[in-house]
């Protein structure tokens, strides 16, 4: 019953989200659906600097609106994806990219997790191998004799 009653609410919320996303693109006219698709993909890869967890495509911040217009005009002027990205990175830094570029200062970011997994796997493998190997706790003759002596000392005299 509850589920039935919630359905319209959920639908409403989804519609609201969809319309909010659409309204950020409403002001732009495109030559073709492919161009619109390209614009959408590009602005979704770019971060809005004001609300940092939103993309340029989704943000209603004023700067995001300006930058969308800028990206749109550059695209209309025939600029390539790289040119648009370079334009924004030159002004705002790599931070505008959701996917940071591979370069020495980001090696830790890109390869760190891989290194951790490899190190973990090596350690795990070593531990597992040690457990499988036969126990290496054989005592030397001298230790055997001492152990026996201790056992014997504990035993009450007369008992076997």
């Amino acid at each position: 019953m509850i589920r039935l009653r919630l359905t319209p609410v959920l639908l409403g919320v989804l519609l609201w989200i969809a319309s909010a996303a659409a309204s950020t693109l409403a002001e732009f006219k495109f030559d073709s659906p492919a161009q619109e698709q390209q614009f959408r993909e590009l602005t979704e890869e770019l971060r809005c600097l004001v609300c940092q967890n939103e993309s340029l495509a989704g943000s209603q911040a004023e700067l995001a609106q300006d930058l969308r217009r800028e990206v749109y005009q550059m695209m209309r002027a025939g600029k390539s994806r790289e040119e648009v990205i370079n334009f924004l990175v030159a002004r705002y830094g790599d931070f505008v990219l959701y996917s940071p570029p591979l370069k020495p200062s980001t090696y830790v970011l890109w390869f760190g997790p891989l290194v951790l997994v490899v190190v973990g796997a090596v350690l795990l493998w070593r531990v597992l191998r040690r457990k499988q190997a036969p126990a290496q706790d054989d005592l030397s003759t001298a230790e055997q004799q001492r152990l026996q002596a201790l056992f014997d000392a504990d035993r009450p005299p007369g008992n076997p």
């Binding site: 600097l49 004001v50 004023e62 700067l63 300006d66 930058l67 800028e70 002004r91 705002y92 830094g93």
Partner: peptide, 13 residues
Amino acid sequence: QDGRVGIDWGVYG
């Protein structure tokens, strides 16, 4: 007025 120069200076706030 339109913030165009602001974009060139990387102004975001």
